[in-house]
């Protein structure tokens, strides 16, 4: 009788094959368990990172609010209250109608400027492109501003969208003016069926993205872009300048 015909040999073969299958199945089960554990671990790490990021953005929002309040207070104190005090003293000491009218006009202009800074006038009726021009106009004395508007589709922008975009541009231009030492800014705004893009470029000295990426200004911009459900990409090359691209996808309800 040949070995393979013996029942004990066949039993042994079945045991070996069975053990092999158990080994493979055990490995598959372990693998599945490990992969699940890994997925859970990754998701938890992601959630934690997201939570930390949200906390940071909230912190930025609060800090920005405080800075803005301080700025308004300083504006009111230094510009308006100073002028009103002068007017009061002049009236007490030697009233001259001409001087008073001049000072009152000056105070009104200052109050208007502060008010416009807080919220642009006729926001509801002003198209976004015009609003952008208005924001950029005061900077034209110190910077060469090249604007390009490419309006292919009309949008029904909400006041909120307009004001947030205005703040983003103001933040960027303030940064350029303060730190970039740029002489030129180019602004390209495009409205199409797909969405809206805004590109701002300067020819300044650029900055180290890794070092300043967590700054208050950039976090503030990020908060606003997130609020508008948009995306942005910023690139800076030292010695060559900085560019910021914002993209806001269209939703059917804001297309005219």
């Amino acid at each position: 009788m040949e070995e393979w015909q013996k029942p004990e040999t066949i039993t042994l073969w079945i045991v070996i094959i069975g053990s092999f299958l158990i080994l493979l199945l055990g490995f598959i089960m372990l693998l599945v368990r490990t992969i699940f554990k890994k997925i859970v671990r990754t998701k938890m790490a992601e959630s934690k990172a997201q939570l930390e990021h949200q906390e940071k953005l909230l912190d930025t929002t609060i800090k920005t609010q405080e800075i803005e309040r301080k700025r308004i207070a300083a504006d009111l104190h230094d510009a308006l209250i100073g002028k009103l005090t002068v007017l009061k003293l002049k009236n007490q000491m030697n009233y001259q109608e001409k001087d008073s009218v001049y000072l009152i006009d000056d105070c009104i202009a200052t109050a208007r400027r502060i008010s416009h800074d807080l919220s642009p006038p006729l926001l509801e009726y002003t198209p976004l492109s015009e609003l952008l021009q208005e924001i950029l106009q005061p900077w034209e004395n110190s910077l060469q501003i090249v604007c390009r508007y490419d309006i292919r589709t009309n949008y029904n922008h909400t006041d909120d969208f307009k004001i947030q975009l205005t703040r983003i541009i103001q933040e960027l231009i303030t940064n350029v003016s303060k730190h970039a030492k740029a002489t030129q800014i180019s602004v390209h705004f495009r409205q199409s069926q797909k969405g809206q893009t805004l590109l701002l470029k300067d020819n300044g000295q650029g900055f180290d993205m890794d070092k300043y990426a967590k700054g208050l200004g950039l976090n503030n911009i990020e908060t606003r872009v997130k609020y508008l459900q948009g995306t942005y990409h910023m690139k800076s090359i030292i010695g060559k300048g900085t560019s910021a691209l914002f993209l806001f996808k269209s939703s059917n309800n804001n297309l005219l």
């Binding site: 040949e2 070995e3 070996i16 092999f20 080994l23 490995f27 490990t34």
Partner: peptide
């Protein structure tokens, strides 16, 4: 030849498969 039934290669194969699986598992983990 009729009684020749070695298990050396089976044992070797089993152990090599086990080592590959352990190695894979170790890397995934």
């Amino acid at each position: 030849e009729t009684a020749f039934q070695p298990y050396s290669k089976i044992v070797a194969s089993f152990l090599v498969v086990l080592m590959v699986l352990v190695y894979f598992f170790q890397n995934i983990d």
